[in-house]
Design a protein around this nucleic acid. Structure first.
Length: 569
RNA sequence: CGGGACGUAGCGCAGCUUGGUAGCGCGCAGCGUUCGGGACGCUGAGGUCGCGGGUUCAAAUCCCGCCGUCCCGACCA
């Protein structure tokens, strides 16, 4: 490609609206332009890179035995109503909805379980047909409450979604493992540093599921990982080793005056006790029953774990009026002497002595409160947030917390969708059974941004060669030296003849502009053809990743570039 | 949805407090010089000051409403 003809105007300055490095660089390097919030046009450079990711995904999915299809982006509401997700998506405005001329409700698909499941049910009737795994690469639509950071959270994004259908759970496990391996290969080939974590299932539901996380400062997801790397989980799903029950001397209960100090932080400050000695009491209504949840004061309730602990009962946090109705003093609730209240304690509450907690009386707390003597719990559950330094649930070594971008998510769905949708096959014994499904997503446009988050420097993007829009750029570092221009053309032609993806910077720009743009766009290898070099019979080459420079004889410039590219990361 | 900020030329910004001629840098066009790390000089083009309403003799500037964009939070295949 001749850069003089490429539809790409780089920006000298950072666009005002971009903060995340990938967002900034994608705009500056002319990979994309914004249309509206969370929706972008891919320019030629961006599209080339996007297609490289698609290609890697296709190759690995095909190698894993999945078959590509293309389902419509426009979806009918009916199957969504059957699975109950129309309300979950459309009513909560996550789904863009529309109506056709007859008034029929339609939506733009945010994911396709409701479409692919009936499709397979329609075509396949027997266990003999299974397993099958269908995937597609398609633009997905989600009316995000808050699109952000360019491609990292868009309202229109390119996604690879795959769906496996098996006759039983054993089959699903095999299908699932194949996808895990394919994902490992895909992200490795993309040059992404990543880890697999145990995850919270969220709206999609199902049993076991994993997230593929790319560590990055701008990531929205927190994960924990133990020192020995035998456990990693999203903080939403993370558990820890449970502390041993505490034994020791119990102080007497004492009431202290804590005027206008309803929050843990206030009391910590006033009484000078560490937050982890405060006993936090959270009020909920669970399945209509008043429930108090206890946990150490330095932790938060993990809502996901809480809901799972109480499933299938509805969990609702108490509002101000509820406290009054139940005779609780907001800000000063303690577990001691509560009647007719279900008390659920986090396991960690067993590991502490002499808690400080509310006195169930305005402006008063109590100290020296102990489990067994002063209060009891009806149940113990793992419901508190994880903290840095907590023990690993597997090996006991300490957990660290990291920030990451979710680039892939795999779910074992079971019959969560096939059952309500009536998607069944006839098994060997003649019985009709619902398909046992898995689903597997990769945010392709998000991977593009995640790779940049991990591979950039002051100069711009540093593409792994697998994703670079062009592997090599030939920079003609002069405008008025015919020999240099001719040598540039020659090397460009030679590289093309060798099927190297090469760009020729033949623009009417100064050398400095071309160098800066080459660094910004991030071509792995730069070849500089200039007057000085041509007269001395040499070309300069630069490896973007390391900044390493090589001087090569003119005649060997092409081959040196090929070799450098082959060796580039 | 709650909180905050911003919207002035293609891009980045100043001007707004204290109302009165719309400005700077980059980019763009022409000419000349220069030619290996975002060149220099001269000349020039380019703006419904987000939109609507109000106050005023007069609004980019003050007031109200709306729209848009970003950030924090809530939410989140």
């Amino acid at each position: 490609m001749r850069l003089s003809e490429l539809f790409a105007r780089t920006l000298r300055e950072d666009p005002a609206e971009a903060e995340a490095p990938s967002h900034r660089l994608l705009l500056r390097a002319a990979f994309m332009r914004q249309l509206i919030s969370g929706v972008y046009t891919f320019l030629p450079l961006g599209l080339r890179t996007l297609r490289k990711i698609e290609r890697i995904v296709r190759e690995e999915m095909d190698a894993a035995g999945a078959q590509e299809v293309r389902m419509p982006a426009i979806v009918p509401s009916e199957p969504w109503k059957v699975t109950g997700r129309w309300d979950a998506y459309a009513a909560e405005e996550l789904m863009f909805t529309l109506r056709d001329r007859s008034g029929r409700e339609l939506g733009l698909g945010p994911t396709h379980e409701e479409i692919v499941t009936p499709l397979v049910a329609q075509e396949y009737e027997s266990y003999r047909d299974l397993p099958v795994n269908l995937y597609q690469i398609q633009w997905k639509y989600r009316d995000e409450a808050r699109p952000k950071s360019g491609l990292l959270r868009g309202r229109e994004f390119l996604m690879k979604d795959a769906y496996s259908f098996d006759r039983d759970v054993e089959g699903l496990r095999v299908s699932y493992q194949k996808m895990i391996h394919a994902y490992d290969a895909i992200f490795s080939r993309c040059g992404l540093a990543f880890l697999v974590v145990e995850a919270d299932p969220g709206l999609i539901g199902g049993d076991e599921n994993h997230e593929f996380m790319a560590p990055a400062d701008v990531g929205e997801d927190l994960f924990v990982r133990c020192e020995r790397h035998d456990y990693a989980a999203n903080v939403e799903a993370a558990t820890t080793g449970i502390p041993a029950e505490a034994f020791g001397e119990m102080d007497p209960v004492e009431e202290v005056h804590t005027p206008d100090r309803p929050s843990i932080r206030d009391v910590v400050e006033l009484l000078d006790v560490p937050a982890d000695r405060m006993l936090k009491t959270m009020g909920y209504e669970v399945g209509g029953r008043l429930t108090v949840v206890l946990l150490p004061g330095d932790r938060e309730v993990n809502e996901g774990k809480l809901r799972r602990a109480f499933a299938p009962d509805e969990v609702r946090m108490l509002e101000d009026a509820d406290f009054e109705r139940h005779g609780l003093v907001k800000g000063y609730v303690g577990p001691q002497g509560l009647d007719g209240v279900v008390v659920v304690a986090d396991h960690r509450v067993r590991g502490g002595l002499n808690w400080v907690t509310g006195a169930n009386k305005v402006d008063h707390h109590v100290t020296g409160v102990n489990l067994g003597r002063d209060f009891s719990a009806d149940r113990f559950e793992d419901i508190a947030s994880v903290l840095e330094g907590d023990p690993c649930p597997r090996c006991g070594s300490s957990l660290t917390i990291g920030r990451s971008i979710e680039v892939g998510h795999t779910f074992q769905l079971g019959s969560k969708y096939s059952e309500p949708l009536g998607a069944t096959f006839v098994d060997q014994d003649g019985a009709e059974r619902p398909f046992v499904m898995g689903c597997y997503g990769i945010g392709i446009s998000r991977v593009l941004a995640a790779v940049i988050e991990q591979h950039n420097d002051e100069g711009g993007i540093v593409w792994p060669k697998a994703l670079a829009p062009f592997g090599v750029v030939v920079i003609v570092a002069t405008r008025d030296h015919e020999g240099a221009v001719a040598e540039g053309e020659r090397i460009y032609a030679e590289l093309r003849a060798q099927d190297v993806e090469v760009a020729l910077d033949d623009r009417d720009e100064t050398a400095g502009v071309k160098f800066a743009d080459a660094d910004l766009v991030g071509y792995p290898v730069q070849i500089v053809v200039g007057k000085r070099g041509v007269e001395a019979g040499t070309v300069d080459l630069k490896l973007r990743a390391t900044g390493e420079r090589t001087l090569a004889p003119l005649a060997e410039g092409t081959q040196t570039a090929v070799d450098l590219l082959a060796a580039a990361p």
